[in-house]
Amino acid sequence: MIKHDNSSRELIAFRIGEQEFCVDIMSVREIRGWAPATVLPKSPPYVRGVINLRGAILPIVDLAARLGFQPPEPTVRHVIMVAQVGSQVVGLLVDAVSDILSVTDDAIKPTPDVASDMAKTFVRGVLAIEGRMISLIALDNVLPALEPIAA
């Protein structure tokens, strides 16, 4: 799953509560401040709603809730990372963007075995940088699956 070569890549690191995560910078389109979203009926709790992104309807996923944390009450200090996920564009609500990391692939270590379901679904590996542990996450499954959600 993880290629062990020395090709370098850039990751964007962000904070949710006490934990740090990162995603490939290539999938991030832009970073915006939080704006109130229009609530969608009968949607899972981690879907905050939709906002207007220059004329397109952008769903906002509360990444904390999606990863199984206690969701925060969004404030103006929260940010939305606009990311490309497959053919769709999704807004990810996170506490703050902390860093841009340039790492080689061999710096990404396999996810430890203690992994929870959340980790299995989203975490693709971990990085140790200056004593911090940063989880690399994949965005493929952030949106609800296509089968109907129970109301």
Partner: peptide, 13 residues
Amino acid sequence: KSLESNYRHVPGI
């Protein structure tokens, strides 16, 4: 505006 292009169909909407 389509909800489906970046999200999915929402029942009732």
